[in-house]
């Protein structure tokens, strides 16, 4: 097991494995996303309260979930970097940042597109939207810091520290924003009250969530391969390619 871990962690090996996995992952993603979209856009009935606008949920909710999941993955990478100085974790961490930022961005945009017909405005200072916005800033901070430091190994450690500090803070931020919101909330916001969600809506939602997870791994591998090649352009294994 440990040996496997070691082998998987070596850049050339990872580069090859990721290359082999990418077509399979792409196929899996396409199958899942097609099924999810079919279920979400065609098979599922309109909601009795929100009509068809709730269908935005099938991209919005998975994006929001992924925005948090990716951050957790980055924090785990950060810990691995600080403890074992593992090169692969550095690359995974920084390759995840733009993907996570994209998911966060998507969650925000689709959330406000859903909010316009439901709440009457594109933007409400709703607790979730606000903490999502702050999460986006955290992602951008990580990307900015990584770009600013020239030596990429040093940059990786800086970003690792920041990711860990951020991960400690994210629950606190979320909690404070929630608390702030209940305190200030005006009467305009009608909460999305949950009738027990129907199976025909839940299934596509889960399919979409799963497909987004596969997509994350896919995009991550793609990004990692490019990053690996860029960093190790002078090493021997790259020359052999």
């Amino acid at each position: 097991m440990f040996l496997w871990f070691h082998k998987f962690g070596s850049p050339p090996h990872f580069y090859r494995i990721a290359g082999k996995w990418i077509p399979w992952l792409s196929g899996l993603f396409l199958v899942l996303v097609t099924a999810g979209l079919f279920g979400g856009l065609i098979a599922a009935p309109p909601d009795y309260q929100q009509g068809d606008s709730y269908r935005i949920m099938f991209v919005h909710v998975p994006s929001a979930w992924m925005s948090m999941l990716v951050y957790v993955a980055m924090a785990v990478c950060g810990i691995i970097i600080m403890v074992w100085r593992m090169k692969l974790a550095e690359i995974v961490l920084i390759s995840s940042a733009p993907i996570g930022a994209s998911f966060t961005f998507l969650a925000l945009v689709t959330g406000s597109l859903w909010g316009k017909p439901m709440w009457g405005t594109y933007w409400v200072w709703d607790a979730r939207l606000t903490s999502e916005l702050i999460l986006l800033f955290l992602y951008l901070g990580i990307i900015g810091l990584h770009n600013a430091i020239e030596d990429k190994r040093v940059a990786a450690r800086a970003v690792a520290i920041l990711a860990i500090v951020g991960a400690v803070n994210v629950p606190i931020i979320h909690f404070s924003v929630e608390w702030w919101n209940t305190l200030h909330q005006g009467p305009t916001v009608t909460k999305f009250d949950k009738p027990s969600i129907y199976w025909s809506m839940l299934l596509p939602l889960l399919l979409m969530a799963l497909s987004f997870q596969v997509y994350y791994v896919l995009a991550l591998f793609q990004q990692c391969r490019a990053e690996l090649l860029r960093r190790e352009r002078n090493s021997k294994w790259v020359e052999e390619l």
Binding site: G51, I56, S63, P98, L113, P117, A219
Partner: peptide
């Protein structure tokens, strides 16, 4: 037509597709 919500539903799918495609 999306039950009158086409203006909101399709752009959100379009932008999702665009961003995901860019990331790939």
């Amino acid at each position: 037509n999306m039950g009158g919500y086409a203006m909101f539903v399709w752009p959100s799918y379009a932008i999702s597709a665009l961003v995901l495609w860019l990331n790939w």
